[in-house]
């Protein structure tokens, strides 16, 4: 009888293991890919999202005002958790964007309305990125994404290094001049958790803003995403925002 040499034994078992691993690998990869592509709100409940209907926004700025009241954001015109930008696209291709005091006190008249191609208001706020750059760069774990998908700042733990302010591609963070920490839209987490809408949603007179639970197919936000053609900001950055806009123009940055 031929005896199995140690070398042969090792060779055979190694190749058997490799074959087995390879055949499993493809299933494992397929599973991992499915897991990665599947939105987290299929697995987690609740999971908060936000929507803005640009075609309904009248630029009254009540949202930016209410946000400051609700969240103790300093009144000076440099600090905003949410603000409303006015876009003016002229026939010659020029695009002007302004947001004096976040839109709270209204907007000056456009210089030349007759040369205007189109103009609209775009409310801005935290995009609730799934892959948030601000969370990634925080050196101490003071910015984080909760189990239900909201990006928050732990103001006790923030060291005020401002990396996250630099990292946010949407410019939705500011440095709180009194607390000396980074601050941002919390999607009024304290309200969501009490069953209330965010302050900006509560005061919006036209229903241009909405927040809600993405894991509930019957929620307003799920219907909004399902029934409208929606788009997110700067999708090419791979941040996977959970904030979506309806009726967004290509000029919006």
């Amino acid at each position: 009888m031929r005896t199995l040499s140690r070398r042969l034994f090792l060779k055979v078992s190694a190749s058997a293991a490799a074959t087995l691993a390879l055949s499993k690998l493809s299933t494992a990869l397929a599973w991992a890919e499915g897991f990665y592509r599947e939105p987290p709100w299929k697995r987690k409940k609740p999971y908060w999202g936000f929507g803005v209907d640009i075609e309904k926004c009248i630029g009254c700025g009540r949202c930016a005002d209410a946000c400051k009241t609700e969240n103790d954001v300093p009144r000076e015109p440099f600090f905003f958790r949410t603000w409303v930008e006015r876009y003016a696209v002229y026939k010659d291709g020029q695009v002007d964007v302004d947001s004096p005091n976040g839109g709270i006190d209204g907007y000056p008249a456009l210089q030349d309305p007759s040369a205007l191609a189109k103009s609209f208001f775009v409310p801005k706020l935290c995009n609730g990125c799934e892959n948030s750059p601000c969370v990634q760069v925080c050196p101490v774990g003071a910015t984080f994404k909760t189990e239900d998908g909201v990006v928050l700042v732990d103001k006790e733990y923030c060291i005020g290094c401002r990396y996250c302010i630099q990292a946010c591609p949407y410019g939705t963070r500011y440095f709180h001049p009194v607390l000396k920490v980074a601050d941002k839209c919390s999607m009024c987490y304290h309200r969501l958790k009490r069953g209330l809408d965010t302050a900006c949603v509560e005061v919006c007179p036209t229903g241009a803003r909405l927040c809600g639970d993405l894991s509930d197919p019957g929620s307003g936000i799920s219907k909004f995403r399902e029934n409208n053609k929606v788009q997110a900001l700067k999708v090419h950055m791979g941040t996977e925002p959970k904030l979506v806009y309806k009726g967004m123009d290509k000029e919006v940055r």
Binding site: G141, Y189, R191, L196, D197, A199
Partner: peptide, 24 residues
């Protein structure tokens, strides 16, 4: 406890006071 952050921060933020009574 929940990730690379202070789990207590979530409860602290949850407990913040609210100012708008809301449409409800």
């Amino acid at each position: 406890e929940l990730g690379r952050y202070r789990a207590d921060a979530v409860d602290e933020i949850k407990a913040l006071p609210f100012r708008y009574a809301g449409k409800a």
